[in-house]
Design a protein around this nucleic acid. Sequence first.
DNA 1: GCATGATCATGC
DNA 2: GCATGATCATGC
Length: 447
Amino acid sequence: MSTKKYDDSSVESIVSYSQSLIGNSLDEVVTLPHGVANKKNKGNLGRLVEAHYFDLPATNSGLDFPKAGLELKVTGVLPNGKDAYKAKERLVLTMINYMEIDKESWDESKFLTKCRLMLILFYLHEEGVSAIDLKFVLNPFLFRIENHDLEIIKQDWGIIQNKVNAGKAHELSEGDTFYLGATRKGEGGEDEALRPQPNSPIKAKSRAFAFKQKYMNLLISGPVEEGGSLLGGSRITIEAATQRRFKPYIGQSVEKISESIGYFKSGPNHKAFLHDLSKRILGNGAESVSELIKADIELKTIRLTKTGRPMESMSFPAFSLLEIGEEDWEDSSFFEKLEKKFLFVVFQEGTDREERLLLVAYWNMPYEDRLEAQRVWEETKRRVSLEQLPLPKATESRVAHVRPKGQNKLDTQLMPSGSNWGKQCFWLNSGYIGSVIKEIAESRNPA
DNA sequence: GCATGATCATGC
DNA sequence: GCATGATCATGC
């Protein structure tokens, strides 16, 4: 560098220099070499910014700015209404090295070393636009972990480390944790793409540490206005704070809870009433809770009969009958859902026929059951592609099935062959959910 | 009682 | 206007 663009030992100088990108594309602020300028490179804008804006060497395995102790991240956003943005995707931070993390301490972990201090730059994603022409938006964001959910992120890291130590790297799921997820990244199909892990001969698909997409949303937009906070500054876990919120209502009838909260069923057809009520218990009156939004928690209410069986199976959003044929399991919406962390709010009908709050539990789907759900998904994909009915029924799997999901039976989709199909969604079988709840209840009240 | 088809209020 | 979470309705 003949003229120094910035002082690479100063965080302030690097951040200040990065400001000039905002409102522009990379191609507008630097003179790119020919090969790069012409390239319809959908590829890695982050790499291009490192190389051509900051003049960083191509190969570096450590921090992008080692002298400043700073890592650079470039990530996409999408418009979210007027003058606002939301994250395009999760922010992938660094690969999880299964053979190393078991020996690490948090303080000297690869994760903390890389991610303690990060400069995050946001570009506005546009379909079909080459990387060098994408515009940077929002202020450069300096993420300092001490100021951002250090306790929860540290706990999340520990959960992932423990699972690897237990020889269960292949069973990892984003739903194991709250903000910092172990997300699937890299090839997974072929044997040679699988990675060794300690304490188990089973090879595991590669995963990376990543901030969940919803977590990124709140970094970008700041706290939601009508949202409450679960932790409110206290240093307990999200789990403990959740139990604390629900505790006064355990054993109470729905009617009584409704009166205490001051939220009532709007009418006989208010089908999501228990869900809406549960959200308000969590928010202490507010309609949402920032921790659960950031952790992308899937809140589900479950109603049990007197005998402990769920009254219904558990539904998920409709899937596209036209697109499922093009999808792989791991980029399907059902996969995304089943890797989430769930919050079950369970009610049970008493002998007096009154429904009471039974228990509240976080849960995420065990590996074996995700494999079975995958089988059902693959079979569904096969039958939809052949336009062969019926789609997988509840009797065909212990875990999942497919059923209609529309406004009514006129809510249909025109299939390639010309016939109309009602919209469909995946369901988790009521019997399966029942066995999950039974297990949770037994673990809390050992006989 | 169970499996499966059909439908609704809400919130954006 | 539509997606979402969930329950209602029907048939056996």
